[in-house]
Amino acid sequence: MLEARLVQGSMLRKVVDAVKDLVSDANIDVSSSGFSLQAMDTSHVSLIAMHLRADAFEHFRCDRPMSMGMSLANLAKVLKCAGSDDIVTLKANDDGDTVTFMFESPKEDRVSDFELKLMDIDSEHLGIPDTDYCATVTMPAGEYARICKDLSSIGDTVVISATKDGVKFTTSGDVGTANVTVRQNTTADKKEDQTIIDLKEPVALTFALRYLTSFAKATPLATHVTLSMTRELPVMVEYAIQDMGHLRFYLAPKIED
């Protein structure tokens, strides 16, 4: 049996809204450690890895691990019915084919419940090794979203190069070329405006902008996003889900044959 009560229920909607355009159906795996989701997009170019820790929940009971397969579009429809400040409680039986979402208003004057049908989904689970990244940049999430949007209007692919001078995003297309350089800024008055670059070795990688732009749908989750890069390996784009977990996107680079 599963029972999980999340005071900040809107976090769930933000996570689902961030990934539902990349992945249509996914298993949400639940165990005593919490909720996790791992899924590749249909083109197998990117991988989503989400984890919400059990201690993020006010109440968490999971008697045995279970995989809840669901349509993320349908899950998004259900979560959209929750008020932005509602407390969300999930309940499911071990061998059931549904999961119930209960939404409670903060003043406890409105309670609703929605039962969502589960589905069987075959999914490959990939092992993601810990990587020593050459370059890690933590920047305001809004700035990342803006760079992706601006460059997408010019080109389809972006070269992200990290050097001691900063992190440069370069694209080109029919219109011409565009470069945006982000430099370390740890003196900004507001912490949410700060950019931190940790460079061990210079690295440059090429990516499809379409995916990087899609990842920016997670912007409402966090003030900052962290990009981690190593030569010839996928970039990891990570949004912290407050102190409750993380949403990570891995994007395979484009590599010369």
Binding site: H44, V45, L47, L126, P129, P234, Y250, I255, E256
Partner: peptide, 14 residues
């Protein structure tokens, strides 16, 4: 030009 790699080629199947 550069070729798009498949993400699963970077990670092992569990």
């Amino acid at each position: 030009g550069a070729k798009q790699r498949d993400i699963s080629s970077f990670f092992s199947v569990k």
